[in-house]
Structures are given as C-alpha cells and as structure tokens.
C-alpha cells in the first residue's frame, strides 16, 4: 500500500488504437485509392499496466514502432488512451492537459522547442511567461541549470549556431525551468556524440538524485538506461515484456557468461560438459557457460591439468546482449514476465 501512496503515474490496462487509411500499391492501386477508403487498425499500445513512484528514474525501451512514443504522448496529455485508465499526478492527463503540462517537463529529442533564429535566452524568457514562473525562482533555476549544463557561454547565441549537443542541453534546461515534478524525455541522446551523450546522462542522473525529479525516458541506447535508470520497462508490439530492475532482468535471464581459455600450444579439441564450445581458434578456445550453478572452478576441474593453460577470461554479458537475448527468446519466465 505504501507504493500506492507515492505513485505519481499509474497505468492500468492502457491501450491505444490508431485508424489509418489503407494505401494501395502501384498506379492501378493509386487510381483505386481515389475512390476507395478503407481503414487499418493499428494497435500501438495494448493493455499496459505499471505504476511509477515519485523520484524514480525509469527507462522505457523497445524497438521502433513498439509504442514507446505513443505511451509518452498519453502520459503527457497529447493523446487520449483508447482504453484503460491512466493517471499522472492524480489526474487523467488529457482531460487536464494544461494543469498537467504545468507540472511536467517534456523533451523531444528529434524536434526542437527552441526558437531557431533567436538567442537561447529568448526561448527561455517566453517559457517564463507561459509557465508563469516567479522571477526569483526563474533566475535561480537559470543559474543552476546553466552552471550544471555548462550553457553560460552560449545563452545569448542564436539557436541555429549551436551544435546538436549544446542545443540538446538547452532543450533539457528549458523543460526544467518551471520545476516540473516529472521530466519526460523522448530519445534525448539521439544523434549526439559520445561526449555530449555523457554530459546529458551525468546531468539527468544527478538531477534525479539531487532534486528528486522523476525521470521517464524512452531510448534506443541502452547505455542511457544503465547510467540513468535503475528501472526498466520493455515493450514490443505495444505489449509489456518486462518491468523491473535492470539487475533482475540480467539474473532472470541467466547469465550466459563467456569463457575464453588460452593455451601455450594448441591442445586439440576439448569438449566439456560444464561449458559449450562456441569457437575454436586452436590455442584460444571460446565457451559459453549457460547454467548459473556452474562456477569457473567446476569448469577448470573438468578440464584437469596438463593442457598448458596460460590465461583465463570470464566475461559477464552486457545489458545489450541481455536485451538482445530477451527479444530473441521473448521468455515467459515466472518473475520476468509481468
């Protein structure tokens, strides 16, 4: 019950269906299209439920067309759910669009909210009026954000002269000027270089820890999630696949560690029962440890002495691999599936 008390976002059986006119291929099809109007139903989001507590940082992950953006758009009040119940800060976002908008911040990675031809500061000033931010609070936030996001040098430069990284930092700052309780980010690191990505991630993670701002972000980039979000929600084809901590996903999927044994000279083929041989380069042999209860000692015990073993390397799978495995197998393991 304690969880319910602090939940600031609650989705229960949320669905969204789009209607799209059918298109027909070729010249004949196009002519046919002049007279024919049929609709295809697209189930972008199907029966999704979750709750998010104040102060959480949640990564919303899925391949293209998985319904990530649609979910964000429903939570920010842009789209109306076709079914189910959705509540953000205790309200249905669409029917209270403006009140909701005043308490959230939204960053779209692929479309700028800054005024292209004008200095960054002008866009910020306009937001001060739109969000009715008290002057003192505005000055304080602007100072804090320009310091944290290293924007001092370019606040008075026209947006069109900024690099993508500078612009994205300005977008994020603009979404935070009015002290939103929740920050939604749709693909915030898309197209950024490594340094810019790192700056954005460090800032968001710090913001979440220091100011307690709830963060919900969609991404393709798993490193975003590893560095910012302890909790992961995975979707595919509109359906919820996984909701939980990143570490739990790793554990539940089995670790599938990779073992590389390097010998002084090629000892010939060595087959083991504790590990599966995946590649044999002669002196170097690659194995996969599929069972969690088998330790490195078990493998070495089975291998025995006398092969001239020089080096051992055991690698944990990275999150990318875990997720790839997850999408490939789409397991319905108890404890993983919601």
């Amino acid at each position: 019950m304690g969880v319910m008390m602090t939940a600031i976002i609650a989705a229960s059986g949320v669905s969204k269906t789009f209607h799209q006119p059918k298109r027909f291929a070729g010249l004949r099809g196009a002519l046919k299209g002049l007279f024919n109007r049929d609709y295809t139903e697209i189930h972008a989001v199907t029966d999704i439920s979750f709750t998010i507590a104040a102060g959480e940082a949640v990564g919303y992950l899925g391949p293209n067309g998985a319904g990530k953006s649609t979910m964000i758009k429903m939570m920010t009040g842009i789209l109306v759910p076709s079914g189910g119940a959705l509540s953000v800060l205790g309200r249905a976002p669409h029917s209270h669009r403006m009140i909701n908008a005043a308490e959230i911040g939204v960053v779209f990675g692929q479309r700028s909210q800054l005024w292209w031809d004008l200095p960054v500061r002008d866009s910020f000033e306009l937001n001060r009026h739109i969000y009715d931010i008290p002057a003192a609070r505005y000055a304080e936030n602007l100072a804090y954000l320009s310091d944290m996001l290293a924007m001092v040098g370019y606040l008075d430069r026209p947006v069109r002269q900024l690099s993508l990284g500078q612009r994205m930092r300005a977008e994020i700052a603009m979404a935070l000027l009015h002290d939103p309780k929740i920050l939604f980010l749709d693909e915030p690191t898309i197209g950024l270089d490594v340094v810019a990505k790192d700056a954005v991630r460090k800032f968001l993670s710090k913001l979440n820890r220091e100011r307690g701002t709830t963060i919900i972000l969609t991404t393709h980039d798993l490193q975003d999630i590893e560095e910012i979000c302890p909790r992961l929600i995975m979707v595919d084809e509109g359906k919820l696949l996984f909701d939980g901590e990143v570490t739990r996903l790793r554990a539940a999927l089995g670790s599938r560690r990779r073992l590389t044994l390097t010998f002084g000279t090629d000892p010939g083929t060595i087959t083991l029962t504790t590990a599966t041989l995946t590649a044999d380069e002669g002196a170097a042999k690659h194995y996969l440890l599929e069972r969690e209860d088998i330790s490195l000692l078990d493998v070495l015990g089975e291998l025995g002495r006398g092969h001239g073993l020089k080096d051992i390397k055991l690698e944990e799978p990275d999150i990318e691999e875990v997720i790839r495995t997850f999408y490939q197998t789409k397991p319905t393991l108890a404890g993983v599936s919601p």
């Binding site: 298109r23 010249l27 196009a30 002519l31 299209g33 002049l34």
Partner: peptide, 13 residues
Amino acid sequence: FQARLAYRNQVWS
C-alpha cells in the same frame, strides 16, 4: 504523375 495520385483528396478538392 504517379506521386500525385497518392493525394486523392487533393485531386477532388
């Protein structure tokens, strides 16, 4: 020619 056909409403209006 073909690209224009895709916009049927445009044609009617």
